[in-house]
């Protein structure tokens, strides 16, 4: 299978603190990978560094996405190349309506990808949006509010899945997308991830818990401890973690 994303000996930190200490990973274009690990192991940092969050510094190593080292590319360039990050804590941006913002982002990404793309009308876009919202059981009033403005925790996470569905990238990085969800919302989010994955897209899911995983069929599980991947394997690793916790990995 073709490698879509290749992370080579990646280091990164914030201020003087080193967080990622040499991460290596390859993700194929149709694969679903899961990174698990205890709090503070560097999972979220990895997700953010992959998307180009400027908050993190001292970067070294390589991030090869679609045969290009994107380590120094800006987040918007990475988005244009087909990378997407669903945030652990989606930002609330008041006064900017979610539907307007999404229409702009959608038009921009589409026309950047396909020179012949003909802009769809606001009306057509609204229909597309409604359809996606129905699948996610999102209240239709929500998208005319400011981005995530006054959304509940669950609504925010669903809104991230809405953006994923609309923007339709090549690879989704999902940062703790399961946190703060009740069982019903968890299922809805899992379905959205599966829909995306079934379009032969790549997924990198970062999670602390395994509860989302019983609805998904990941190909690979990686365990991250202290800024490094300490073990990789198939879905069976989840069971091991469930039984033993991260303690054994810590000692290993």
């Amino acid at each position: 299978m073709k490698t879509l994303l290749s992370i080579k000996n990646l280091f990164a930190g914030i201020g003087a603190k080193e967080i990622l200490k040499g991460v290596n990973m390859n993700i194929g274009s149709k694969e679903m990978h899961v990174i698990m690990g205890p709090n503070g192991s560097g999972k979220s940092t990895l997700a953010n560094v992959l998307m180009g969050n400027p908050k993190f510094s001292h970067l070294s190593g390589e991030i090869i996405f679609r045969n290009k080292n994107i380590k120094s590319e800006s987040p918007d360039k990475r988005a244009a190349m087909g990378l997407f990050l669903a945030f652990q804590y989606p930002r609330e941006i008041s006064g900017v309506a979610l539907n307007r913002f999404l229409f702009l982002a959608y038009s921009k990404l589409k026309s950047g990808k396909d020179k012949k793309y003909k802009q769809i009308s606001v009306f057509e876009f609204q229909e597309k949006l409604q359809e996606e919202m129905k699948k996610l059981k999102i209240n239709s009033e929500l998208t005319s509010r400011g981005i995530n403005e006054g959304f509940s925790g669950g609504e925010k996470k669903k809104a991230e899945m809405l953006q994923l569905g609309i923007l339709d990238p090549e690879m989704a990085i999902l940062d703790e997308t399961d946190s703060g969800l009740d069982v019903d919302a968890l299922k809805i989010v899992a379905e959205a991830i599966n829909r995306f994955s079934k379009k032969n897209k790549a997924v990198l899911l970062v999670t602390h818990y395994q509860r989302l995983l019983k609805y998904l069929n990941p190909n690979f599980i990686h365990v991250m401890i202290d800024g490094k991947i300490v073990q990789s394997g198939g879905p069976e690793l989840v069971k091991k973690i469930e039984k033993e916790g991260y303690g054994n990995f810590l000692n290993g």
């Binding site: 998307m51 180009g52 969050n53 400027p54 908050k55 800006s74 987040p75 918007d76 990475r78 988005a79 244009a80 997407f84 990050l85 945030f87 989606p90 930002r91 941006i93 913002f101 999404l102 702009l104 982002a105 921009k108 990404l109 950047g112 953006q163 923007l167």
Partner: peptide, 16 residues
């Protein structure tokens, strides 16, 4: 302007 807000919008393809 919050830098995290800028990053959030840029991650959806908007220039800074």
């Amino acid at each position: 302007i919050n830098e995290d807000d800028i990053f959030y919008l840029c991650s959806r393809g908007l220039a800074p």
